[in-house]
Amino acid sequence: MITPDREPTAVAPRLSWGARVAVFTRMFAVQGSWNYELMLGPGIGFCAEPALRELPGGPDGDAYRQALARETRYFNAHPYFAAVAIGALVRAELEGRPAAQIERFRTAMCGPLGSLGDRLVWAGWLPFCSLVALLAFGLHASPVLVVILFLVLYNAGHIALRAWGVSTGWRSGLRVAASLGAPMLQRGPQYLARAVLFLAGLALPLAIARVVGRRGLEITSHDWRIALPGAALLAIALAVLLVRLPARVEGWRAALAVLAVLILTSIAR
């Protein structure tokens, strides 16, 4: 019998394979009802719910209702790293940890799981995979190869991260914070940043060349000799300008304005 004040156990409680699979599958929709009020909260409850059914009394019991209510409250994290919290919270609920302890854990995990995910995934892994795809594009890979290369590479990291997150959370329970200090997670963003910079230098000139369109004689060699260096210099100048401007100046808005002028000039001539 699980009671609210029961001491944590060294061995993880039993959880059926059906519940494990359901929790993992639901994590892909953790942001399904994302909103500015509760943010990821309802999504955490949605993901944990299949496991909570295994609490004493089942889905009609008080333990289930109290746990589900707790897990749907405000929570925010990177969506992939939310898996760490879900694994830990499910274990804590099944171990019958005190409600106050679970609430404190939820509050404490929001910041670290958000910033780590943003640095490792959004500013690291995603641009890395985009640049690999742009490199393949620049090297004249076929459309199918470019798309498959990007999707397989990105999702190998994406799915592995979610699986690692939920299993680490489940294994460590509320002591999972120590796992986030692992050298790979702490140094990973630095390694990825270097790889992204190297790939940017490598892929962007090749991508520019393919967009300008030398191969297949889309343009004459005379035009090519002017167009490619001109594009490269303009790109460098724009990049330097955007870096020097305040961060709130967004390049895509500038691109939209430039393209609008180009289109209007073309049809007005």
Binding site: V211, A231, A232, A235, L238, G251, L259, S266
Partner: peptide, 15 residues
């Protein structure tokens, strides 16, 4: 036209 397009896109990405 494609030179301008490539330059703008690569400039934004590089920055």
């Amino acid at each position: 036209s494609h030179s301008v397009l490539a330059a703008v896109a690569a400039g934004v990405a590089g920055g």
